[in-house]
């Protein structure tokens, strides 16, 4: 049985990679991808705590983390749709989706 530490480690590395992508990429779509990876890492943390948590008295409470993940998935879907629509709109206006080109 792998301990909780391992999952948290994986999640934090995944989050760091997502952070790097979101901060260090030029392309708007890449940035959205980075945000999705970060959300994935958070999902992983929530699920692993739900699995390894020992403070639950009944079955229902043990699944609160799962419900949280479902809400995160919902928000992620909404966020992706809006963000990518904005990408398309920005492309139509500026003819580029390069972040550094748009600031100038």
């Amino acid at each position: 049985m792998v301990s909780l530490e391992a999952y948290l480690l994986v999640a934090s590395i995944l989050f760091a990679i997502g952070l790097f992508i979101a901060l260090g990429k030029r392309n708007l779509i890449s940035i959205v991808m980075g945000i999705e990876i970060m959300l994935n890492a958070i999902n992983l943390v929530a699920i692993s705590f739900a699995r390894y948590g020992s403070m639950f008295d009944n079955q229902i409470d043990a699944l609160a983390g799962h419900v949280l993940v479902i809400f995160i998935l919902t928000v992620a879907a909404a966020e992706a749709a809006i963000a990518l629509a904005l990408c398309v709109l920005v492309y139509r206006h500026f003819n580029t989706i390069n972040v550094s080109d748009m600031t100038s």
Binding site: F20, L23, G24, K25, N27, Y91
Partner: peptide, 11 residues
């Protein structure tokens, strides 16, 4: 224009 995935200057 969107095919590349290069790093920005803040990478």
């Amino acid at each position: 224009v969107s095919i590349n995935n290069q790093n920005s200057k803040y990478f």
